[in-house]
Design a protein around this nucleic acid. Structure first.
Length: 612
RNA sequence: UGGGGAUUGGUGUAACGGUAGCACGAGUGACUCUGACUCACUUAGUCUAGGUUCGAAUCCUAGAUCCCCAACCA
C-alpha cells in the first residue's frame, strides 16, 4: 500500500493532447485507418516517379437505373479517399448484364457523378472512365487459363437442376459435369461464345468447393449465355461474365488498391480472392501464363439508409413505371438527379455523407439530417426574396392611391457581398394567410385586429379591419402604415432609443407588381420511417400529400432572375423569406414560372402551434 | 439448425487496457428587421451474464438480438 501502485501515467501512452483547438481534428474512419496502415507498410508501393503511396479507388455502378443518395455516399467516399491521399479515382461501369442495362443510365450516371464532384476525368485525382465490357476479351483469356489449370468447367445443368442440386448448409451440392476433360470444356466454351447454344443451355463454372458452407463457393457460375444486344459491345458477345468472376478482374486490371463495396458482398470476398489467386497460381517469371496479376483488397462498409424513403433500384424503378412519381428525377425521389432538380447543392450532399460517417454498422439515418445539410449550404448562399404562397390582400388605407415606394432589400444577411436591391411598395399588398388571425392565441406575433407588425424592409402596419364575404370567409384586411418606420426601422426618440417595438415581422409582395408563379411544395414521399415495414408493401406507406402545388405571387425581381441552366441542370436557388429554399424547375418558362421547394426553414412556431 | 457480419445517449459517430467525447435531435434561455441564422446551458449511453486485471466499451468465456448468404442479378 505504501509503494505507489501506479505513480505515473501508463507507459507507451502518448501524453494527452490538451483539449485545445487541435482537438478539431476528426478521427480517422476505419477505411482511412486501413489505408494509412497500408501506406505505412508500403503494401501498394508508390506512384511512378514519386514517393506518394498508391491509393486507387473506383466507383463501379451497374447502368441499370439512376444513382441515389446511397451511391452518393460511395462516390464521395471513393473519390474523397483518392483526393485525401493523393491517389486516383475511376468511374467504371460494371456493364456485365445487357438484359438490364441501357445507355440512358450510363449518361445519367456520368452526369450525376460529375455533378457531385467525383472527378474521374478531370483534376489531379482523375483515374479515368472505364467499362467492364472493355475487358471481355481479357476475361475470356483468363477463363481459358482456368479451364486449362483444371479450375473451371462447363456445366450443362439447367438453372432448375442447379437449384435442385444446390444442397443445404450441411449437404453438399453436386454436378455431374465437374470432372469432364478440360478439352471438352474448352470446346464448349468456344461454342457458347460463338452463339451455338441457347440461353441457359450451359454455363462455365469455377471448380471450388461444392460442400462449402458459404454457398457462393459452391462452384459459382463464371459465364452464362445471354443472347442480347449490349449497349457498348453490341452483338459481339453472347456470353457475359457474372459479377463475382468479373469484378475482381476489373479492379485488378485497373490497378485498384482498395476495392470498397457494401456489406452484402462480405460473403463474396473469398470468391473475389479465389479467382485472382487461381489465375496467379502457377504464374511467375518463367511461367507460360506470365507474371501474376495485381490483387486488390476488397473492403466492405454499411450502405446509407435514410428514413422515410426506399433505396433499392427495383423499388424506385417500380415507382417510375407505375407513375407514382413523374420520373427518376421527380424531386421527391431519393435519386441524385431528383435532389439536383429539387435544388439541393452538391455540397450539401457531400457534407451530409461525410457528416454521417462510414462504418460497418447497419443503421438508418434520419432524413432530417439531409434536409439540415441542405439548409446549411443554402442559408449561406441563397439570395433572399419575398413570395407569398397563400395570398391575403391587405389594403393600406392611409397610403396614397397610385404611389409607389422603392425600398432597400438586403439580398443575403449571411453574405454582405451580395448587396442590396429595390422592392416596390404600394397601397395594396399581399401577405401570407397564415400571418393573419382574427382571434390569435397568446404567443401569435403576427397580424391581428389592432395588432402592429413590421413588413420586412418596408413599414410597420396596424390592422384596422377585416373584410369578409357572405359566407364569412376572410377576403382581405385593412390596415394603416406608420410613415416614421420607412425601411422597417423602428422610430427613435430624441434619446436615440426606439419609441416603439414590434415583435413580428412578416413578408409581403406589392399587388400591382407581383408576378404569378406555380410553387410545388414537396413533403416526404412516404409517411413511414421504414416504408413497407407495416404491411410488407412499401407502396402502402406512400404519403398522399407529398406534393402540393400552389398559385403563389412573387416579387418581380424573382421573375427577372428565374434562370435555369440547361448545362448544369440547375435552376436558380433562392430563399423565400420565412418560408424556405426554392429553386427554378426545368419546366419553368418566362410566362409560367415554376418553383420547387427544396426544403422549408425550421419553424419553431409551427411546432408550438400544432401540438397545442 | 451451416457460414459471414454487427451491437456505445432518441439518432449517427469517437475511444484501440487508463477521465466515455463529438455531432444531430430534443428542452431551456439570449439575440434578432426571417418564430430563420447565431450563441449559451441542459438532457441522455457502453446488449446480457460471468471471468482476467490495480483498472475493461476495449481482452477471455457463454448467451441475446439484428443484418446478409442456397439468381445463369449486381
Amino acid at each position: 500500500m505504501n509503494a505507489p501502485v501506479n505513480p505515473s501515467k501508463p507507459a507507451g501512452k502518448p501524453a494527452q493532447a490538451s483539449p485545445s483547438p487541435a482537438s478539431e481534428e476528426r478521427s480517422l474512419n476505419f477505411l482511412e485507418q486501413i489505408i494509412e496502415a497500408d501506406n505505412a507498410s508500403g503494401k501498394w508501393g508508390s506512384w511512378d516517379g514519386s514517393k506518394t503511396p498508391r491509393v486507387h479507388t473506383r466507383f463501379p455502378p451497374e447502368p441499370n437505373g439512376y444513382l441515389h443518395v446511397g451511391h452518393a455516399k460511395s462516390i464521395c467516399l471513393n473519390s474523397g479517399l483518392a483526393k485525401k491521399y493523393g491517389g486516383k479515382f475511376n468511374l467504371r461501369f460494371d456493364d456485365t448484364n445487357p438484359a438490364k442495362e441501357e445507355q440512358e443510365y450510363v449518361d445519367s450516371i456520368i452526369r450525376d457523378v460529375k455533378w457531385l464532384g467525383g472527378d474521374f476525368d478531370t483534376g489531379p485525382n482523375a483515374g479515368g472512365l472505364f467499362y467492364a465490357s472493355n475487358y471481355f476479351d481479357q476475361m475470356y483469356a483468363f477463363a481459358v487459363e482456368l479451364i486449362k489449370k483444371g479450375r473451371a468447367y462447363v456445366c450443362q445443368l439447367s438453372g432448375d437442376e442447379v437449384s435442385a442440386r444446390r444442397g443445404t448448409p450441411t449437404v453438399p451440392a453436386t454436378s455431374p459435369w465437374r470432372d469432364r476433360p478440360a478439352e471438352e470444356s474448352l470446346r464448349l466454351l468456344d461454342e457458347m461464345r460463338d452463339g451455338k447454344h441457347a440461353n441457359g443451355a450451359m454455363t462455365l463454372r469455377a471448380k471450388i468447393d461444392l460442400a462449402s458452407p458459404n454457398f457462393n463457393l459452391r462452384d459459382p457460375v463464371m459465364y452464362r449465355i445471354v443472347h442480347e444486344e449490349h449497349h457498348n459491345t453490341g452483338k459481339k458477345w453472347c456470353i457475359y461474365p457474372m459479377y463475382d468472376w468479373a469484378h475482381g478482374l476489373e479492379d485488378s486490371l485497373e490497378g485498384i488498391t482498395h476495392s470498397i463495396c457494401t456489406l452484402e458482398f462480405e460473403n463474396h470476398r473469398p470468391l473475389y480472392d479465389w479467382f485472382i489467386d487461381a489465375i496467379n497460381d502457377g504464374r511467375g517469371p518463367d511461367s507460360e501464363w506470365g507474371m501474376p496479376i495485381h490483387h486488390p483488397q476488397q473492403i466492405e462498409f454499411a450502405k446509407l439508409r435514410p428514413t422515410y424513403t426506399v433505396m433499392s433500384k427495383r423499388n424506385l424503378l417500380k415507382m417510375v413505371e407505375e407513375k407514382v412519381v413523374s420520373g427518376w428525377d421527380d424531386p421527391r425521389m431519393p435519386t441524385i438527379s431528383a435532389m439536383r432538380r429539387r435544388g439541393y447543392p452538391p455540397e450539401a450532399l457531400r457534407n451530409f455523407v461525410t457528416d454521417v460517417g462510414v462504418t460497418k454498422v447497419e443503421s438508418y439515418i434520419d432524413v432530417g439530417r439531409l434536409e439540415n445539410a441542405a439548409r446549411d449550404v443554402l442559408n449561406k448562399t441563397a439570395p433572399r426574396a419575398m413570395a407569398v404562397l397563400r395570398p391575403l390582400k391587405v389594403t393600406i388605407e392611409n397610403w396614397p392611391e397610385g404611389k409607389v415606394d422603392e425600398l432597400d432589400f438586403v439580398i443575403n444577411p449571411e453574405d454582405a457581398a451580395a448587396g442590396k436591391r429595390k422592392v416596390p411598395f404600394s397601397r395594396v399588398i399581399y401577405i401570407e394567410r397564415d400571418d393573419f388571425m382574427e382571434n390569435p392565441p397568446k404567443k401569435f406575433f403576427r397580424l391581428a385586429p389592432g395588432a402592429e407588425v413590421r413588413l420586412r424592409w418596408a413599414y410597420f402596419i396596424t390592422c384596422t379591419g377585416v373584410e369578409k364575404d357572405a359566407a364569412g370567409n376572410i377576403t382581405g384586411i385593412r390596415a394603416t402604415y406608420d410613415p416614421a418606420t420607412r425601411g422597417g426601422d423602428a422610430p427613435v426618440g430624441p434619446d436615440g432609443t426606439p419609441t416603439k417595438k414590434v415583435k413580428g415581422t412578416i413578408h409581403w409582395v406589392s399587388a400591382e407588381h407581383a408576378v404569378a408563379a406555380k410553387v410545388r411544395l414537396f413533403d416526404r414521399l412516404f409517411s413511414a420511417e421504414t416504408p413497407g415495414e407495416r404491411t410488407g408493401n412499401y407502396m402502402d406507406d406512400l404519403n398522399p400529400n407529398s406534393l402540393e402545388t400552389v398559385d403563389a405571387l412573387v416579387e418581380p425581381w424573382l421573375a427577372q432572375h428565374a434562370s435555369y441552366d440547361h448545362k448544369s441542370l440547375e435552376g436558380a436557388r433562392f430563399q423565400f423569406e420565412r418560408l424556405g429554399y426554392f429553386c427554378i424547375d426545368k419546366d419553368s418558362a418566362p410566362g409560367g414560372l415554376i418553383f420547387n421547394r427544396s426544403v422549408t426553414l425550421k419553424d419553431s412556431w409551427a411546432k408550438e402551434a400544432k401540438p397545442g
